[in-house]
């Protein structure tokens, strides 16, 4: 049962408009339709990639400096390297972000906090591990307080090696992530 069954279609539709079609369907049906219908229509045409297109061009990241890479993240988000060009804007709260940039060492004390931040982010979300420390512990591989295998805790999409990586490498990692988002299959198979 669609919404057009509940709310009657306005009678004042021209005869002309009734003849119009979009993707082989009558326009009137498209106009007064349900979410399911919209998804059906999106699947029919080139518009079907619109969600991933939108997601990939507005990857807001959480400003979350944790180490040396955090300082490079400052610069990456600021004017000289200007991540805005790729729709990547620093946000201050996890509730407004799509990408968690893991920018340094995760200690035993910080891990629960970091996990909370990750869980506060709305879906769909992605995670980038930047620098050796976030990937494998880096120079602190034998520290008593550093978590070495962060991939056990977080579903990391892109790894950017370096100690710390340059802001250009941040940009490259971001572009790789955008490629990944573009090819992403949703529950609805977009």
């Amino acid at each position: 049962m669609g919404i057009s069954d509940v709310i009657p279609v306005p009678v004042a539709i021209d005869d002309e408009i009734e003849k119009w079609t979009i993707f082989g369907q009558p326009v009137a049906e498209v106009w007064f339709t349900t979410t399911e219908k919209i998804h059906q229509i999106i699947e029919m045409g080139p518009i079907k990639n619109i969600f991933n297109w939108g997601r990939k061009n507005s990857v807001y990241f959480l400003m979350q400096p944790m180490g040396c890479c955090g300082v490079e993240m400052f610069v990456f988000g600021a004017a000289p390297y200007d991540s805005d060009r790729f729709g990547c804007i620093p946000r201050n709260t996890p509730r407004q972000t799509d990408v968690m940039i893991m920018s340094g060492y995760i200690t035993r004390k910080y891990l629960p906090v970091f996990k909370n931040l990750w869980e506060e982010m709305p879906e769909p979300k992605w995670c980038i591990a930047i620098g050796e420390c976030a990937i494998s512990g880096g120079p602190f591989y034998d520290s008593y307080n550093i978590i070495q295998n962060t991939a056990d805790y977080f579903p990391i999409d892109v790894f950017i090696p370096g100690c710390p990586p340059r802001p250009e490498q941040f940009l490259e990692g971001l572009i790789n992530l955008q490629e990944k988002i573009k090819q992403r299959k949703d529950k609805r198979d977009y």
């Binding site: 004390k109 910080y110 906090v113 120079p139 602190f140 520290s143 008593y144």
Partner: peptide, 14 residues
């Protein structure tokens, strides 16, 4: 504090 305590002083001994 101590959220990014890495134990550098101990690591440097090794």
């Amino acid at each position: 504090v101590g959220y990014i305590h890495k134990g550098i002083e101990k690591i440097m001994e090794n």
